[in-house]
Amino acid sequence: MSVVNSSNREPEVIYSIRGAQFRGIRGRLLTTRLMARELISSRELIFRLYARDFSTKYRQSALGVLWALLVPLATVAIFAGMNSAGVFTIEEMSVPYVVYALLGISIFNLFNGVLIASTPSVVFAQNMVSKINFPKTALVFSASIHGLVDFAVRGVLLCGVFLLLKQSPHPAGSVLGVVALLPLYLFSVGVAFFSTMLNAILRDITNVVNFGCMGIMMLSPVLYPISGDSLVARFNVWNPFNYFINVPRDLILFGSSKQMVGYGIWSMISLAVFYVGWRFFFIAQNRIVERI
């Protein structure tokens, strides 16, 4: 048992209305350094919380992780069926529709999965957060891993579909395409910080997120290309998902994309959203706990 016994020492931590001030951490970019310190110190916890959720999510489930495949498969099957039945017409494309749609929905589900797993994470852990002092950001980061893992599982499904349809993705583009998902992931985590925080105070946010994700999917080029001069097409000029979905998909399928400028701009914005969301959550986490 080690016990501090030096005299005239500084407090280990000071709690005041301004938040927690830790010994030896002062100066410029204080909040950012504290955020980074918290992330590094809680990295084991993040993975342990993820492992907990993963193992308990599928522990009494017959299909287990297959659920990550079934939902996108069913969605694509419905759209493919509607397309072939002539309910709506999808313009001619150089790759099979199933590959296009499955890739689109897998990419979109990265955003969807992160947001849906993260938003109620603090509320679900309310007993823990109100009784134990630990970094609440770990809950959001660990929930965001769900989106990544589900995407990886769907990647296996995609490989199967490529083989089945005798299609091949662009070799170098596939690697670039996966890397190009990073801005979408950062954007998703940034938004998740806001939604998690708000959901702790207003429980409506969970429903808003579910409904909003469905709406965004319908308005974005996830399951069908959007072109021409329609209202939806004009909206998509400003829609970040237009770039976050099309660019990685184009890179994987064709090795290049025509939307790189918009993608670059939105990548910068996604970085800002991630930082601002994280910082906001970091500063407000104690206030959130008080109001759960």
């Binding site: 709690y15 005041s16 002092n133």
Partner: peptide, 8 residues
């Protein structure tokens, strides 16, 4: 414990 922050 730092779970809550003081108001003053």
């Amino acid at each position: 414990n730092g779970i809550y922050l003081p108001d003053s």
